[in-house]
Design a binder for these strands. Structure first.
Lengths: 129, 129
DNA sequence: CACCTCATGCTAATAAATTAGCATCATGAG
DNA sequence: CTCATGATGCTAATTTATTAGCATGAGGTG
């Protein structure tokens, strides 16, 4: 079992990475406001520095303050995270996962989204032939 | 931003929960063998005890040893984890996530799975009308 | 029944994560 | 130019997580 980068992150570090990935990039203050049970500004900056050290984040200076962004591409990390969820909860099956989401009582997909999804699947079927 | 249960777990605790969810249930030894950089058997048992304490796991005695299982239903936790990934990496869009997986170079879906997926989508479209 | 094996419950020590405070430096206003 | 504002880089302390060892008890075997 190979160890994924996410396995190396502590609780707070993970929370922060989630926020940064969700936003694309963020300042220390923005990260702080996104954290549950937010600690001091100091604490947040310390964690951010650690993440930079670990190579998870990079920062650029903009208007006198640091803006943090992930070093690894969102698309890669996202796919990997998605796979992990599929493996952990759905035997690795995308089908089961989609079924679970669609069955959720909470209506979540617009007709347009469903249509586009359908389109995607059909296309994959043709190409996969 | 409400704090999800997964936010309360430490690195090792999370790894263990993933293993248990993936297997459905597991003994201490099984958990240990599934952990990357596996620590001592003692350490694993200590973590398991903590998880029971936190209400994440329950255990039953079977053939003289404990078998651990999650207290919360796999389907619930899985949906929640899936949603989190969608929110963090795909703007909450299932469509984008599926597209990302399908475009992955690594062929991953069998024609049968694609067919069933297609079926699921169509059904959702009809019901959603 | 006596013994061997294996799992548990505790206790304790070490390592890592999390937090905060302070001195310093840059920026923009007056 | 001088000052007020806000961000940074350190340093240090505390809390939490992680790890391992040991004594005890249950169960099965000869």
């Amino acid at each position: 079992m190979s160890r994924k980068p996410a396995d190396e992150l502590s609780r707070r570090e993970r929370q922060i990475m989630n926020i940064v990935y969700a936003r694309g990039e963020a300042s220390a203050a923005e990260v702080q406001s996104g954290l549950p049970d937010a600690p001091s500004y100091s604490a947040v900056r310390a964690l951010l520095a650690i993440l930079v050290d670990k190579g998870q984040l990079k920062h650029r200076s903009e208007q006198g303050r640091y803006i943090y962004a992930p070093t690894r591409r969102r698309s890669h990390v996202g796919r990997s995270a998605l796979r992990r969820v599929l493996d952990t909860f759905y035997e690795g099956s995308l089908e089961k996962a989609v079924a679970a989401l669609l069955q959720g009582s909470e209506a979540n997909l617009s007709p347009e989204e469903l249509a586009r999804l359908s389109e995607l699947i059909e296309q994959a079927r043709k190409e996969g032939r």
